[in-house]
């Protein structure tokens, strides 16, 4: 099911390649254009060239962590409309608060339900 003509772009950032594989499949199935990055720095590099509608972000990554990546994104004027979803194994209330504070719109906990993840992304794409 494709919602937009020009395919919406999503950047998936996670240091676990297998999770990236799963997320790529799920999002491609929905018709999104999926870009991948395996570290925070790599993600920021990619964002120089693309302007995704959504960034799916892991928190615990080697080097720069997800919170820092989110804060940097929020400082990029070009990405004003880009939504950030945290998808992380860190599940305490404090982690969530840090996530929202760093500028993310959504915070989802691993392991996740495929349907919930997909419908969340779809909702964001539909209503902004």
């Amino acid at each position: 099911m494709q919602i937009s003509d020009s395919a919406s772009k999503i950047l998936v950032v996670d240091d676990e390649p297998n999770i990236v594989i799963a997320l790529e499949y799920l999002l491609q199935r929905e018709g999104y254009e999926v870009h991948k990055a395996y570290t925070g720095q790599e993600a920021l590099d990619r964002l120089e060239t693309i302007t995704p509608d959504v960034v799916v972000l892991d928190v615990m990554m080697p080097g720069m962590d997800g919170f820092e990546v989110a804060r940097r994104i929020r400082q990029m004027p070009a990405l004003e409309c880009t939504k950030i979803i945290f998808l992380t194994a860190k599940g305490t209330q404090r982690d969530k608060e840090s996530g929202y504070a760093s500028g993310a719109e959504y915070y989802m906990i691993k392991p996740f339900e495929n349907e919930v993840f997909v419908s969340t992304v779809n909702e964001i794409m539909a209503y902004g």
């Binding site: 676990e16 297998n18 999770i19 594989i21 799963a22 997320l23 799920l26 194994a89 691993k110 392991p111 996740f112 495929n114």
Partner: peptide, 11 residues
């Protein structure tokens, strides 16, 4: 533990 479980579950 959650990381591999996440991959396994999703896939």
């Amino acid at each position: 533990l959650r990381t591999p479980v996440t991959s396994i579950k999703a896939l």
